[in-house]
Design a protein around this nucleic acid. Structure first.
Lengths: 226, 226
DNA sequence: TAGATTGTTAATCGATTAACAATC
DNA sequence: TAGATTGTTAATCGATTAACAATC
């Protein structure tokens, strides 16, 4: 199969999340392209085309096997192949990531955390031991770590990225605002926490939304009740 | 000016960040479309077109006034109009957001945090007081809060969103994996922490990158030195 | 002037949507 | 069968890129 474009990959993951979530509730054996399309605001033709590119075959008059769709997407994206990752910077954001049960679902196993603060070293967060940054290079090489998660001050990001790449890391999940330079073949996925604020600021530039007094009353009542 | 499309908005913000960062270092009075284009991998024509849509006029043979570009983009996006926001869920992720100096830069002023845990109520994180969730509705209405940041368990997200909307909140920055339903005119910006893992998993599906022994040696040496 | 850059129009490219025969 | 859905091709749409006269 040809390399999937980013937009297609993103849509496939949305389909997967939708189906995985829905099938938790009621047993959805089959699903049609228009059902997915309606829920996710994607054209049904687009859904069928995307399914076609990953080799999914539907059934006339019935739709697609929901389980097969999930399984296929998991395989195509690679969620079914666990890979080891280390977290660098055991601060609040680092702790939040370690605590997220979600990451497991997508194949990531965070096997160690690193921090330069001696008071943090030796402690455990969510079952993951915090090691001194001094042993990072050795650890990454010995355990053939493929992903590094950067939750550190931006100034430390580039030197660390250089070190990690030379130790064989193949992808960097960068939570710092720093722009990282890495050799071809290494993936940098920037995850700026503040990414949404542009859209939000632009939205709030508009005139203030009118709020009805009835809503106010109901809200206070609701808050009192809780 | 017509409503900006999302892609244009995103590019404008990238230009802004690039110029704001660069001008910290050396005094860049003017900047050309090709300079920006090269740095950000955007076609120079695209840069000029985007600048045109926000009314920026360049100078032949010279380029654009870097300060004017920054100022104009700030105004167009709305970063120069501060707005109040509340954070709901003072956990690790919530703490990380409160600690981020970045949010101020984009117009957001987090004025209060809320949590249902009585042990957290009354404490302060980064100068922001944690209030009981009970007073949320009243607080939001009295202070005319426009943005709510959701860093809570997903199951609580929809009911809270309903409450917030009825209290006049106009935008929700949703860090939970829950899909939220809100009335037209209210913006939901989903900020899934795990968004990058699809691309990462897909990248790591490929064959393992070859690592040269020379890199290993250098890495260990570098780590020893630090 | 010569040359570099803008501003804008035209051309290209790719992605999305529409349409419809084939299928069960 | 009738009708709903797929799979796929053609048409449309919009975004990106190329080109180039105008400018300083």
């Amino acid at each position: 199969m040809a390399r999937l474009k980013r937009v297609v990959l993103d849509r496939l993951i949305r389909y997967y999340r939708f189906l995985a979530d829905v099938s938790d509730g009621r047993r959805a054996d089959t699903v049609t392209s228009s059902r997915i399309g309606a829920a996710l605001e994607v054209d049904p033709s687009q859904v069928r085309k995307d399914f076609g590119t990953v080799g999914l075959i539907g059934m006339s008059r019935v739709g697609y096997d929901a389980c097969e769709v999930c399984r296929t997407i998991r395989t195509v994206v690679g969620f079914d192949r666990p890979y080891g990752g280390v977290l660098i910077g055991a601060g609040k954001l680092g702790g939040a990531i370690l605590a997220s049960a979600e990451v497991d679902r997508y194949g990531l196993r965070i096997v160690a955390a690193f921090d330069s603060d001696p008071f943090k070293v030796g402690r455990h967060i969510e079952g993951v031991t915090i090691l001194p940054i001094r042993v990072l290079a050795t650890y990454v090489m010995e355990h053939q770590i493929r992903l590094a998660i950067l939750t550190i001050p931006p100034s430390a990001a580039q030197p660390l990225a250089d070190l990690l790449v030379s130790c064989g890391v193949e992808a960097i999940w960068n939570f710092t605002p720093a722009r990282l330079e890495v050799p071809r073949g290494v993936l940098v996925r920037n995850q700026r926490l503040t990414a949404g604020l542009g859209e939000i600021a632009y939205h709030l530039k508009g005139p203030r939304r009118a709020v009805r007094h009835r809503d106010y009353a109901a809200a206070i009542e609701g808050a009192d009740a809780s």
